[in-house]
Amino acid sequence: MNNGRRHTAKAFPWRRSLWIASLLTPALVVMVLFVLWPLLSAFRLAFYEFNGLQPTSFVGFENFRKVLFETPYSDWTYNALKHNIIAFVALMVFENGTAFLLAYALLKALPGHRIHQVIVFLPVVLSAVIVGFLWKLFLHPLFGLVNQTLALVGIGAIPWLGNESTALGSILFTNIWHWLGFPTLVLLAGMQRVGKEVIEAARLDGAGDYVLMTRIIWPLIAPSVTIVTILTFIGSFNWFEIPYVMAGLTGSPGGATDVLGLYFYRTAFGSTTTGIQDFGQGSALAVMMFIIVAGVTAIALRYLRRREIEL
């Protein structure tokens, strides 16, 4: 039977090609329609001037020049970009750092580790809108749980989301609370793949927890770290939902929580209360975001993969 089938495939190679093509086509159509076509459209629109809501004339790199070099647009662009970078660094240090420690603690299977695993992962399944709204209530200056608790020890109302110095930190904290479980699970899965014999050998050689974590586990979970780093970078530069729910489209107060996602959205689609839509500049911002995310991800992936092999 098998021989017969192989013979048929050899005799009619086009049949096999047709079969493969039929399997690939649906996915390809979806990708072209919903990913490639919008992407190419954004690229095209980035080079046009808009009069009202219609593209009027080809203006080359004018939209890019405006968002990068002309005030106040350039100020807004760099302000938002700065916050994306801060978000990436903060999430790498605080979210992924905590996730690493938590994963290690869970790996040690301390009493109650199973319930802790569930607790840590639970917020991940909630929608970002719910989490943002919930924490906006918790951080409310007058009625919020946080300030009510602080009031018990005599600390007055702190406008967490209304103060330029605390707003971004509050939103980052919320993001960490929401997503902490995800890197924890990825890193834990990586740690569980490290051979028990390796850990036991290190223990026999007298390695304590610190040495075990830094010298044995950290290098061996490099593939997991690569995934977590890349996903954190993409998430940081596409950050939208939680800042939108907690700080609004303008990244209030005074742009202190503005990020590229918010800036792109209100530039392209406008806002009822601030003004008008500009698809040209909006598309230029979207293209820049794409270049940053795709470019840095490609470079970082190359570097991190090489690091995995070296380690």
Partner: peptide, 12 residues
């Protein structure tokens, strides 16, 4: 204005 007015929104 209320304490923490910087964070008091329209609804509140």
């Amino acid at each position: 204005m209320p304490p923490g007015f910087e964070g008091i929104d329209y609804e509140t």
